[in-house]
Amino acid sequence: MLKLENVSMAIGDNTGEAREIITGINLEFKPGKLYAITGPNGGGKTTIAKVIMGIYKNNSGHVLLDGEDISNLSVSERAKKGIAYAFQQPPRFKGLTVPDMLNIARPGLDQVGIRKSLRDVGLCPEDYQDRDVGPGLSGGEMKRIEIAQVLARDARVSIFDEPEAGVDLWTIQRLIGLIIAKYQNSPKSTAIIITHNERVLPICDEIIVVDGGRIDKQGSGAEIWPLIKDDIECKVKLQCRGEIGYEF
């Protein structure tokens, strides 16, 4: 359904030289499957997502949706074709409320739908009826509302960029349940989760490890999880002891 063929993306740095952020990425995403992208901080995970959404343009290679090269389509056009992306750091808006955003994500969504969307991400709908998606919300609230928007879109390709950040374990479990129900074995849609979460990774159909802008490892969850498990568990332990920050 979605294919990246030899995709590279470079950004001009402050010396004026182009620096390649991702290099020669080849990936295929099939309907009904759940994909995880993982790897160290700065590895290029978000960049891959943004290249799929069209926020960054690939300098070479092709992004193909159902065989059509969408590399030159705008973000809006890709959204209309069924690509959705839940930002790692969603921007804030003054004057757009939580229901406003959900209505933009899914035009015509009624009160019942809005309430359900919010409950699905562990928020109490009554508290968000007229609150701006703005400076008054915490990082965790922003993340949940971001995820709710992408779930509400019912897109063909849904990318969730580190959905676990700032979200409690209970909600993450519930969200994963929702994502599995919605996308695993779906005849026409797929989900890509960028994550380090040790509960999410093992249950994904495929794990893609991105490091230094390249694909380092790739394979089924059963194959890859044992290889990266220690690394991730070690990070989680260090986090618990406060030795490294939660952003990684």
Binding site: M53, I55, S74, V75, S76, R78, A79, K80, A84, Y85, F87, P90, P91, F93, K94, G95, L96, D100, M101, I104, A105, Q149, R153
Partner: peptide, 26 residues
């Protein structure tokens, strides 16, 4: 980022600009 975010929800660039302004002045 605000423009791109709204465009990723399916709005055109112009619609995104107008949505942001209308909200801001609401």
């Amino acid at each position: 980022e605000q423009l791109v975010k709204l465009m990723s929800l399916g709005l055109s660039e112009e619609e995104a600009v107008n949505t942001i302004i209308e909200g801001f002045l609401k």
